[in-house]
């Protein structure tokens, strides 16, 4: 297995208390496979990705339990220097959710896309320049050779997102974590980014973790889906099982909340309420307060029920 995560727990030690951002999640990603991580905003998707790279918020973020294995190598106990040298940006790369925070406003985009290639000694000088142009071409930035000297603010939101993608794929990582890589893009370009991710995968055999709000993008790119809610994976399964027979009430509600092309205009089915605080999460089912099917039992933590091969969900309704 390319990546095996077991019972991962990542906490943020804040003034207000300990926030259990990732609370005991397990998943695998095989070589050449795309796993979709979908779910509520604030459910811990980004922090799951950042945990793999150990790029947690400085001072507060800590992996407090569980294991992360890449090609069998345990990463949670690896030294910071070894992680920086061999793993981060090299074997595991991340396309960050907010392109503006991963781009430095005072450096040209040519410099920034070239920087991982330089740092990992992949190319220098003229070869570096042509490698940068090449990778910018692969992400379909218009006239890349002319724009190497331009700065991030001179590009549109979607163009910046592609520049960030270029930074991540430059070193042909084994595992690519793509955090909302298509959010700011219009669909014809979204298709191109989807195809780009597919091509990278076919060329390099990289595994991909796709973090997305967009259930359409997830459906078209992923082989398996893990649905997160309040720090936990509440349902996971092959893509068809998740979309055809969603079983957890949250997954069902999520699929009902999206406007669909060509569907009749009706009021959207919003999920009432807010997810619980992760500082003092309820001991029972974390979705209970918003769940339309809640029962008394739901005050206790629901067991994970296997529904079919590789498809499981954590809900008392399914027991």
């Amino acid at each position: 297995m390319l990546l095996s995560v077991r019972d991962l727990q990542t906490h943020l030690h804040l003034k207000r208390g300990v926030l259990r951002a990732v609370d005991g999640i397990s998943f695998d990603v095989a070589e050449g496979e795309t796993l979709g991580l979908v779910g509520e905003s604030g459910s811990g998707k980004t922090l799951t990705g950042l945990s793999l790279l150990r790029l947690l918020p400085k001072g507060s973020g800590r992996i407090v339990g569980g294991s992360i294995k890449l090609d069998g190598q345990e990463l949670t106990t690896l030294s910071e220097s070894a992680l920086a040298r061999d793993i981060r940006g090299r074997k595991i790369a991340m396309i960050m959710q907010d392109p503006m925070t991963s781009l430095n406003p005072v450096f040209s985009i040519g410099d920034q896309v070239g920087s991982p290639l330089r740092n990992h000694d992949i190319a220098r000088g003229a070869a570096l320049r042509s490698a940068v142009v090449d990778v910018l071409q692969r992400v379909r930035l218009p006239s890349p050779a002319d724009r190497l000297g331009d700065y991030p603010h001179q590009f549109s939101g979607g163009q910046r997102q592609r520049i960030v993608a270029a930074m991540a794929i430059g070193c042909t990582p084994r595992l690519l974590v793509a955090d909302e890589p298509t959010t700011a893009l219009d669909v014809t370009i979204q298709v191109q980014i989807i195809n780009l991710l597919r091509t990278i995968q076919a060329d390099t055999g990289a595994g991909i973790i796709l973090i997305t709000h967009d259930l359409g993008v997830a459906a078209s790119l992923c082989r398996r889906i893990a649905v997160m809610y309040a720090g936990q994976i509440i349902e996971t399964g092959p893509v068809r099982a998740i979309y055809r027979t969603p079983s957890h009430p949250y997954t069902k509600a999520l699929l009902a909340a999206i406007p669909r092309l060509g569907a009749k205009r009706t009021r959207l089915v919003a999920i009432a309420g807010q997810p619980p605080s992760l500082i003092d999460p309820p001991s029972g089912c974390r979705f209970a307060a918003r769940c339309t099917q809640r029962m008394d039992k739901c005050a206790e933590a629901p067991p994970t029920v296997t529904l079919s091969d590789g498809h499981s969900a954590a809900c008392w309704k399914l027991v």
Partner: peptide
């Protein structure tokens, strides 16, 4: 044609890309 539908059996049109 390029809208990815929340349906794993929907094939994205190549023309769109």
């Amino acid at each position: 044609a390029a809208v990815p539908l929340p349906d794993p059996d929907h094939v994205l049109s190549e023309a769109a890309a």
